[in-house]
Design a binder for these strands. Structure first.
Length: 417
DNA sequence: TCTGGGGTCCTAGGACCC
DNA sequence: TCTGGGGTCCTAGGACCC
């Protein structure tokens, strides 16, 4: 049995590179990648954070996630481009299509990352690292953007390898290279070590991945519980999950949330925002063929206090009105009158909607479900704005918030490796 | 740090049952 | 109600990923 070979391929500064390529293809002489630039939202509507930065922008210490305002302060000539998600979907797919030519087993991990299982391909190709270079160069030449490829024997090591030096590089972290290439890195660089875990580890003088790897796993488990065991395993390169095709990923929940462009101070407006969020959640729920047994509402106040409220429902539902009604009740129970900055609606505990449990309960939603299906099909044919509720007229609230990903077979981010 | 939006999983505490 | 222990379900919140 030959050993496993896994590639992790990561598009460099994905959104920004894709936007840059798109502009060059449409005759723009400027390559955004060569100047300080970012993809980011609009501060006027309070969506102002940096999603992706160019390498020249990085030289100004601009960080992903920081506000557009502070980024502009660091670099006054910074070019800011709004995100264009449908373009990203296309680029992501074109990227995956090339990878498919090299192995029958690939997994999309996020919009800009794929895993490829290259085990047992030795008969076709002799050196996997050579193939990694070929893939990298093909994507650059044919699609115009660069990627990093990480090569190893499992997913975590391949992923850690692809994050080493960027851009346009191939790296390996084979097990015997772990001490030299991975253990020297600061603890924050390890997959699944975020801010909170890094702080706890550093408080115990665990500063590098190597410190963690060589620590007593029993002690790690004692103070970080199961998450401690997980990161200790990762630090040692222990991980064995398969690359799995994501034909139809088993989704766990569907949510939609938004930062509202103004602070909501009254119940009526809040309910209207919840309706606009519910419209897309419910549409996506019906499109995916599920009903939900749990509805949650989340809320952020103007002082950035977050809280949430959820309710289990005993008849699984997929109706816009039914979900909205519960969302409003949850909001009313949660809200203490503070100005509201952000609202979210989420459904989970999904089950197939082809079963008749729906009709068995106190409220017969059958008629409502027929209406929903009709509206869904009208929107599908004539666009999302073709039908909307009159309550949104002159309300200052958009009739529908967020995309429904209609016919775009976009696999949502999968969970852990 | 005037700070988005989509996910997943884990944990802790309370209610309830036997 | 001077009172145990184990199990499951529900809810809220936290942590992580991109």
């Amino acid at each position: 049995m030959s050993k496993r070979i896994i590639f992790h391929i990561d598009a460099n500064s994905a959104y920004l590179s894709w936007e840059a390529v798109h502009r060059l293809q449409h005759g723009d002489p400027l390559d955004l990648r060569t100047v300080p630039s970012v993809i980011g939202g609009d501060p006027v509507t309070r969506h102002g954070i940096v999603l992706t930065k160019s390498i020249p922008a990085k030289k100004y210490n601009i960080e992903t996630g920081e506000s557009i305002l502070s980024a502009s302060a660091k670099c006054p000539e910074l070019i800011i481009v709004r995100p264009n998600y449908s373009l990203y979907m296309q680029c992501s797919k074109a990227f995956g299509d090339i990878l498919c030519e090299y192995s029958p087993l690939i997994e999309q991990y996020s919009i800009d990352e794929y895993f490829v299982d290259f085990s047992n391909m030795g008969r076709l190709y002799k050196d996997p690292v050579e193939v990694a270079y070929i893939i990298k160069d093909r994507i650059k030449n044919e699609l115009g953007f660069t990627v990093n490829v990480g090569v190893s024997t499992n997913k975590i090591l391949a992923k850690m390898a692809s994050e080493l030096k960027k851009p346009d590089m191939v790296h390996t972290i084979f097990p015997d290279e772990i001490p030299d290439k991975m253990w020297v890195l600061p603890i924050e660089e390890l997959f699944m070590v975020g801010r909170a875990t890094a702080k706890k580890l550093r408080s115990r003088s665990i500063n590098t991945i190597g410190d963690l790897a060589n620590y007593d796993p029993k002690l790690i488990k004692l103070f970080l519980k199961s998450h401690g065991t997980l990161v200790w395993n990762y630090a040692n390169g222990y991980e064995a999950s398969p690359v799995r095709e994501n034909r139809r990923p088993m989704i766990k929940g569907i949510g939609n949330s938004t930062t509202i462009s103004f602070d909501v101070e009254d119940r009526r407006t809040a309910h209207l925002v919840l309706l606009s969020l519910t419209e897309t959640v419910a549409t996506r729920l019906r499109q995916s063929g599920y009903c939900a047994r749990l509805v949650s509402v989340s809320l952020r106040t103007n002082e950035f206090y977050n809280c949430s409220h959820q309710r289990k429902i005993y008849s699984a539902i997929d109706c816009t009105n039914a979900i909205h009604e519960i969302a409003c009740e949850l909001f009313d129970e949660l809200w203490k009158g503070q100005p509201v900055r952000h609202l979210g609606v989420r459904v989970s505990e999904l089950c197939e909607n082809d079963f008749q449990q729906i009709a068995l309960f106190e409220k017969n939603y059958e008629k409502q479900r027929t209406v929903d299906r009709t509206v869904d099909s009208i929107r599908k044919r004539f666009g999302n704005g073709s039908v909307f509720r009159s309550s949104f007229l002159n309300s200052g609230v958009r009739f529908s918030s967020g995309g429904t990903m209609d016919d775009e077979e976009y696999p949502m981010m999968s969970s852990l490796l």
